[in-house]
Design a protein around this nucleic acid. Structure first.
Length: 435
RNA sequence: GGAGAGGUGUCCGAGUGGUUUAAGGAAAUAGUCUUGAAAACUAUCGAGCCCGCAAGGGUUCCGAGGGUUCGAAUCCCUCCCUCUCCGCCA
């Protein structure tokens, strides 16, 4: 949620910044709603003040043994009026916060303007595309031949976009997970990345977390990540949603809490199975394991002060690129435009990995800098020099495991239909060099 | 799922209808004392919202939401969570 104070001080800015994201914000009616709410609140406060006065008088009179029936009648009338005004205030408050939630987080000035995904900017291309002396296959051909995936039976049991993942790819996934957890727990690696990027933040390691995979409606809405119509599964009997990313149950972790400043930054590497309905994507990426209803993901989440939020964002990006380079995968590093960063994010980057078997780049990573937009609604705060302020949140993919498995399969395939294991993962695979 | 006990501020904890303006203690911060520290003493010490240039004032919050009452942390209802026992279960 945006800061209402910014809207009051500079409605034109909000209007303009929202337009950059193709969102039309009626600031006039928002401000009118806000004004009405404040007047109503003053009225309610003064009625409550009167209520407290009557109550205090009544107490004295009762103690003296001479209750005043006129005063009681006054209290009764006041009660009716107060109830009416309080109901109205509640309605107006709900209306205002619902309207405020529709206002997107203003993009940082460094974010390029755009109207479609096509306006994203490739900032750099890193790594060499592998060369083959044969026609590289898409990962599903290799995986099917090697018995690494079974989508037919998964469709029979669970429907489309599910998979039984088997054998070598499963072992590779566990190796990837170990590799990531070890890397993000290694302060010397973090320190090097911090120095290389000239960041003013500590090399505090990431704590691995397995968060809940379901969450209640209230925190999910506050997280600004609930995509109820298209993406998120709901368990109606229990008021629970299946999380669509570990990030969703991680960013909500300190809902309604004040974090001691000395505990910041808090860095987590979360592992969770992620569930997505993928409504509206019928016919897209139907083959292989690029787009599934269920996939496992390692996601980084950082809580920091406002001061270091942007540096944390840069660190997460540096980690993403380091991980990709360690795997020897070629990628485009993309600065997303205002059209594509998403409503809650102030800035965002993607990594699009090269998939030689499909002769195209596919998005495998995202890094989002959310500033205080999530924290305001989640009410996650910290104290800086005695002042309470909202924390800044950052989230970024470490590895979306199924997509990286697919990428490794395509990039590391051999002419005899095997898949070589990237060097950094071999130790986690008991020294095995191919699967 | 059944039976019972609970949920109060950073923490512990008192409070069963009206000076609760949430006691008391601990922790924390500052000061006094001290060569320094500890101890002791003194002071400060929750979070919102609204009005105000400010000083300050008003108001809300005792798990959440309703209700009763002139007045609710306190009484009633629903829900959530925690603990104990039973049942089921990886």
């Amino acid at each position: 949620m945006i800061d209402i104070q910014v809207l009051r001080d500079n409605p034109e800015l909000i209007k303009e910044k929202s337009a950059q994201k193709q969102v039309t914000v009626d600031t006039e009616s928002l401000l009118k709603l806000d004004q009405g709410k404040r007047e109503l609140q003053q009225h309610v406060d003064s009625l409550r003040e009167r209520k407290n006065e009557i109550s205090a008088q009544m107490k004295t009179l009762t103690a003296e043994g001479k209750p005043d029936t006129a005063l009681i009648d006054q209290g009764k009338m006041l009660k009716v009026e107060l109830a009416e005004r309080e109901d109205l205030l509640k309605k107006v408050e709900e209306e205002l916060s619902a309207a405020l939630r529709l206002v997107p987080n203003p993009a940082l000035d460094s974010v390029p303007l755009g109207t479609t995904e096509a306006d994203n900017v490739v900032l750099r291309t890193v790594g060499e595309k592998p060369q083959f002396d044969f026609d590289p296959k898409p990962h599903w051909d290799i995986a099917n031949e090697r018995g690494f995936m079974d989508k037919e039976r998964a469709a029979k049991i669970s429907g489309s976009r599910f998979v039984y993942l088997k054998g070598g790819l499963v072992k590779l996934q566990f190796a990837l997970m170990q590799f990531v957890i070890d890397t993000l727990g290694d302060e010397s690696v973090l320190q090097r990345l911090i120095d290389d990027n000239k960041l003013a933040i500590p090399a505090k390691p990431f704590t691995p977390v397995i968060p809940p995979a379901m969450m209640r409606t209230e925190p999910y809405i506050a997280s600004a990540r609930l995509n109820a119509e298209e993406q998120t599964y709901k368990l109606d009997r229990d008021d629970l949603w299946m999380n669509a990313s570990a990030e969703h149950t991680l960013c909500t972790m300190y809902w309604n809490e004040i974090l001691p400043a000395e505990e910041l930054p808090i860095r987590y590497i979360g592992y969770s199975t992620s569930f997505r309905r993928e409504a509206g994507t019928y016919g897209k990426d139907t083959e292989g394991i690029i787009r599934l209803h269920q996939f496992d993901k390692l996601e980084m989440e950082v809580f920091s002060t406002a001061k270091t939020g942007e540096d944390e964002h840069k660190l997460l990006i540096a980690i993403q690129e380091y991980l990709m380079q360690q795997l020897g995968l070629s990628y485009n590093f993309v600065q997303k435009s205002t059209a594509d960063i998403g409503k809650p994010n102030a800035s965002g980057n993607d990594i699009d990995c090269w998939f030689p078997g499909q002769d195209r780049y596919i998005e495998t990573h995202t890094a989002d800098y959310v500033t205080d937009y999530q924290a305001r609604d989640l009410n996650t705060r910290t104290k800086v020099d005695g002042k309470t302020e909202f924390v800044h949140t950052n989230d970024a993919t470490a590895f979306a495991l199924s997509r990286i498995l697919a990428a490794i399969t395509e990039n590391y395939q051999t002419s005899d239909g095997l898949v070589r294991v990237p060097e950094v993962l071999q130790n986690y695979m008991g020294g095995v060099k191919t699967i």
